[in-house]
Amino acid sequence: MNKIKIGWLLSLALMLGMTSCGEQKSNTKLILNEVLIENQTNFQDDYGIHSAWIEVFNQSYSSANLAGYRLKVSNQPGDTASYFIPKGDVLTLVKPRQHSLFWADGQPNRGTFHTNFILNGTTDTWIGLYDSGDKLVDQITIPANTLKADESYARVSDASEDWEVKGASEDKYVTPSTNNQTQDSNAKMEKFKQHDSVGVGMAITAMSVVFSGLLLLYISFRLIGKASVSVSRRRAMKTKEVTSVEEAKEKKLGEAPGEVFAAIAMAMHESQNMHDEEETVLTITRVKRSYSPWSSKIYTLRETPKK
């Protein structure tokens, strides 16, 4: 019977788990983050050449490897170029919350980060990032003629949903291989400095949370304690054949304090007379030390030379 119940419970848990998995959004670590199509005076590659580039961002807090991924580009339906990111280059490992830049210069012989295609901004440009299982993990379409020279199409901030044109104004600047929105101050710290320079707000908030946490524990264990006492009382009532709860409460059934258990243990110990008489019996126990070559005298002595 119990096995059937456990089986039902497990099946239910499995079903719930699977349902919740189905609801989850695909959780990819690597995403497209910024694209620059016409590079005139912007970032240069290692060869000193200005080329179009695509920035990939690792939005997770663990490293992610781009090896085996594919970058695909299409300017018109049915015409898709694909670049396989080679395996075996340690530089394809993108550290947590870091970026990786690919040069769309059509020169794959120049290294891992140079693709076999170029970008063309005169028509709609679709860029897709595919994982090693050829599953689309992220894509973006840049409408035709959206970007002028040295302007990029980028997420507003790293990994955010919305995209915008960067490079057109002072506050929206192009950010190859770095955060789309540079943080030049610690926002949280600034907020604290501005609104809570004395620390009273923090003290009140934090102490409320500490009290709430321990209050929750208190309430839970008060209830659990009551339930536990009630269970032991019911058991004691069954043993003593008491039917009235009032009577059981009066007799404090099931509420034996620790001293009672100590007294019972002592009485059992005394009645069973398990111990020898220590005053008259001398017990010699052999001390056995575990062997170790580190403490062995034989190993520390030099052997007598053989003649």
Binding site: G199, M202, A203, A206, M207, V210, F211, G213, L214, L215, L217, Y218, F221, R222, I224, G225
Partner: peptide, 18 residues
Amino acid sequence: ISNPKLMLIGAAAQFGIF
């Protein structure tokens, strides 16, 4: 566990931190 209200004393002493 036997006297859970004592937990609140543990919370009160954290005033030292703040």
